[in-house]
Amino acid sequence: MSEASASDAVRLRFERLVAPWRDDLYRYAFWLCRDPSLADDVVQEAMLRAFKSLSSLKDQAVVKTWLLTIVRREHARVYERKRLDTRDIDDLSAAEAALIASSEDTDIEDMRKAIFELDEEYREPLVLQVLMGLSTAEIAEALELKQGAVLTRLHRARKKLVDRVSPALGIVKE
């Protein structure tokens, strides 16, 4: 195979395997860092890394968890490089406020605000489970936690969300 056609093959493989995940990876990065521009940067860098190391992906079935790991690492690098401060959960940025208000459904608005207010340790496993469809075992592996700890965090995350939005949903707290 010539150099050019090998390069074509890599690009085609990238488009087929990786590109379809771009929006979900952006959402994941956004829920991690709560900043649209930063999420863009994280995904951009992650895509670049994925493009360059695509040959290391032997099993296509694990592409989603492979990409999530890259995004997660890139997010950590971004914070390390920039030494970003952890943001106060009460201090919603203009972008967060805009996202919350972007839905015409007030229940979704309330839920987004509640998700923003979750601590990262609760928000991330929830996003991985609901948005990315990972099993608790996969989440445990990705976050380097025991499965029991993941279940506890998921349970607490939902409890906090339900407590926060329960009046609107008619869920009776007992």
Partner: peptide, 10 residues
């Protein structure tokens, strides 16, 4: 609702 809230329009 959680699922819809997380899946915003990119």
């Amino acid at each position: 609702l959680i699922s819809e809230a997380l899946r915003f329009d990119v």
